[in-house]
Design a protein around this nucleic acid. Structure first.
Lengths: 235, 235
DNA sequence: TAGTGGTCTAGACCACGGT
DNA sequence: CCGTGGTCTAGACCACTAG
């Protein structure tokens, strides 16, 4: 099947954004400019730009141009209130276990498929703070496939998703979540400095990505007493 | 400002869907057909149809046509696992308080704006079951404005959102959510037939709608022990 | 094969933003 | 004023679905 012209343009512009040729805040070439560069009509250019807007890479402004946006991290997912807004020094993260080989967990809500279960598994575990207060324990599993060199990689700005995007050109494309309220286990209570049996919010997430072979499984336990979990979804 | 042609077509088709002229599962007129009917080009027709697809009213299938979809209820929102899948008789709802005048609640995460606070408030409260098991207590507040006759209205299929859409042509356009895990109050524990202090999932939601004057505020308390809360988001 | 939606061309005119 | 994106026309050819 022939690659569609607007998909080509989309891919060119997107990789330009991801590689920093068009940094956040800068403007893409104008539509007429792109028409000339690639010898196509505006209809096709606009179709490519529409996809970039839908994917959250670009904001268009009438009379000004197409501006590269700060890539959204969340996609309608849940975030600790303040984790997205207070990007500064209030939020911090420490590794409880650095990325390493591990075993696929048992008894989780979503089960890795056969291919994944057969593949080696990467695991890492982090503790996230708002200020001095530990608010969330986060465990992550994913197949080793297609993430060459991941184990020795440093996270860009401490962000796993940003690393995926900038180092591997992999984007989060969707998620399934499952939430429960349950009493804290002894281990988690200790980490979060709360009493055993305190109500905790458990979130299990299966992320799908632009790499069909890569799903990411995360298990979160959150102390919501001071910092509830937020989620904004705009139609 | 002149109404855009594709918006007109969009509105015509959408109201046709909402009024049942194009029932769920049926096909809209073909693109060429619409071109002739309204004396416009396919570009414009397709723009209108694209919006309907984005809004979740329609599925397009190459070679077949544009099919009217079952209107999604959730928009990336949270739902009790089983509430969406098991549409049948497993799920039921009873009113604890039927729609009536009430007071705006205090100490909620999102505060109604001035206009809303000044307006009379409608309140209703429901208890939702999966099978025989009560799993969720749901309280709802909204301004009376623009919902003429709501207090004497029966919900279509017991669904509040479906009633909004079909009776008032109002759609949910977005939401903000806030989640906490907390111990059950005596009253809620009683309703959900669990012990006091059991961990409960509290979800507070502010829905925005296509009517700028109508936001809906919901407070949920969920027993997630047997039925966790789920959420699927596809990019 | 006929009819549908998917992609694309080559134009036109309009509305917005900044100089 | 000029350059930008927003809307729209009038075609063309292709790819998919189903009888």
């Amino acid at each position: 099947m022939k690659e569609k012209r607007y998909r080509q343009i989309y891919a060119i512009l997107k990789s330009g954004i991801q590689k920093g040729i068009y940094p956040t805040g800068s403007y893409l070439p104008s539509e007429n400019n792109l028409c000339q560069t690639y010898q196509i009509t505006r209809t096709t250019v606009r179709k490519a730009l529409d996809e970039l807007v839908n994917d959250g890479f670009v904001d268009k402004r009438h009379g000004k141009g197409s501006q590269v946006k700060e890539r959204r991290q969340s996609l309608g997912l849940l975030a600790v209130k303040g984790f997205s807004e207070a990007v500064g020094d209030r939020v911090s993260t420490i590794f409880l276990q650095k990325p390493q080989y591990g075993n696929w967990p048992v008894d989780l809500p979503f089960i890795p498929n056969e291919e994944e279960s057969a593949s080696p598994c990467i695991f890492f575990k982090r503790l996230r703070y708002v200020g001095d207060i530990p608010v969330m324990v986060e465990s992550n599993w994913m197949p080793l496939t297609a993430l060459d060199g991941f184990l020795t990689l440093d996270f860009i700005n401490g962000s796993f998703f940003k690393t995926l995007s900038q180092h591997y050109q992999i984007e989060i494309t969707g998620s399934e979540q499952e939430l429960r309220a349950l009493p804290a286990s002894a281990e988690t209570a200790d980490l979060l400095e709360i009493s055993v049996e305190s109500p905790l919010l458990q979130i299990f997430i299966k992320f799908t990505t632009s790499d069909p072979g890569l799903n990411i499984y995360s298990l979160l336990h959150c102390n919501t007493e001071r910092y509830p979990i937020g989620n904004i979804y705009n139609h």
